[in-house]
């Protein structure tokens, strides 16, 4: 037993010594045309410790990968799956890197770069291109005609892209709100004046219309009537201090879902509707005028009236185009 062990150790030492002998680079044939043979420095770093480390890392990679398979079948927990697979890959990476740096021959090569931009070859290319036009009398005209044909074919190929969507026309201006349409909540129940508390807000939709389009949702708030800071002419459509705004920010289309309402006097900052995306802040007392932020225009308002049972009813269409701005949105300036 001990004899076999000794033989084994001797053999290992022998192979090790042999392996450390510098060997000749067989593949690099000298005298290949144009390219000088690369100058390579070589070192054989392998040691028993490094090889053991690689073996250990490979064993760990195998075990962890096997664990992943077992876990997948028996207990597919996300954390354990990630841990086992990730660990396996990292262990394999460690094996490769240690092998690359501590086991295989370490070489540093110096290689000359090839020349770029040989003037003679460039001239040859030009000459070949030029000679392709030999004997042609109306060269310019032919090139011009080919260019025109190519450009037109290109344009013809692009034109069908216009079929990818509908024309704009009035599509972006049409909302489902019509005079007389009731305001309902998410469950379809009509909202009444009593539902809207001072300091709170409700989200409303046009009764019987689609809710998931930008023209639909409105945010309904209520102020004391003497809080409203608008000239008499613009106070229409705010019965009992109940005001409805489009819930879609005219800046970038997010839902204006924050109502900043101070709970005590003095009321600074002023009650305002805020968009959480880019902080466009709209003054509730002044009919949705911008207080702060990037929006280029006020929050559109939906005029309301109150029905016989206190339910809120649209009394017209939005005061401005709803939704994010585009070229062509009409702005009402200088009235507030």
């Amino acid at each position: 037993m001990s004899g076999r062990l000794r033989d084994f150790l001797l053999a290992r030492v022998a192979t090790r010594v042999l392996r450390r002998l510098p060997d000749v680079e067989p593949a690099e044939r000298p005298g290949e045309p144009g390219v000088p043979p690369p100058n390579i420095e070589r070192e054989l770093p392998s040691s028993a410790g490094a090889e053991r480390a690689v073996l250990a890392a490979l064993a760990l990679a195998t075990l962890a990968a096997a664990a992943f398979i077992v876990l997948y079948v028996a207990f597919p927990d996300t954390q354990l799956l990630g841990l086992s697979l990730g660990l396996s890959l990292v262990a394999f990476a460690v094996a490769l890197v240690v092998a690359g740096k501590r086991v295989v021959p370490q070489e540093t090569a110096v290689e000359e770069r090839e020349d770029f931009g040989d003037a003679q070859r460039q001239e040859e290319v030009r000459a070949i291109v030029r000679r392709g036009g030999d004997g042609i009398s109306r060269r310019r005209m032919l090139i011009g005609a080919a260019g025109a044909a190519g450009a037109t074919i290109g344009a013809a190929a692009l034109v069908p892209a216009a079929s990818l969507g509908p024309r704009v026309g009035d599509r972006l201006r049409q909302s489902p709100w019509r005079p007389g349409r009731r305001v309902v909540d998410a469950d379809g129940t009509p909202l009444t004046v009593g539902d809207i508390e001072i300091g709170g807000f409700r989200t409303g939709f046009p009764e019987g219309a689609k809710r998931d389009e930008l023209g639909s949702p409105v945010i309904v708030v209520r102020l004391e009537e003497d809080e409203i800071e608008l000239p008499e002419a613009q106070r229409a459509g705010m019965p009992s201090g109940v005001i409805a705004f489009s819930k879609i920010c005219p800046h970038a289309g997010c839902a204006v879902s924050i109502y900043r309402h101070p709970l005590y006097e003095p009321t600074e900052p002023r009650p305002a509707l805020v968009c959480p995306c880019h902080f466009s802040t709209f003054d509730v007392r002044r009919g949705g005028e911008l207080l702060f932020g990037p929006a280029g225009r006020p929050l559109p308002r939906l005029p309301l009236s109150i029905g016989s049972e206190g339910e809120l009813i649209a009394d017209g269409e939005y005061t401005e185009n709803y939704g994010p701005s585009w070229s062509g949105v009409r702005q009402e300036r200088g009235e507030t």
Partner: peptide, 18 residues
């Protein structure tokens, strides 16, 4: 070494993912 980097990248990504 480069393959090592491949597996290290993949390994770290799966550890993050898990």
């Amino acid at each position: 070494r480069s393959l090592g980097l491949l597996f290290a990248t993949a390994g770290v990504l799966f550890l993050l993912g898990g």
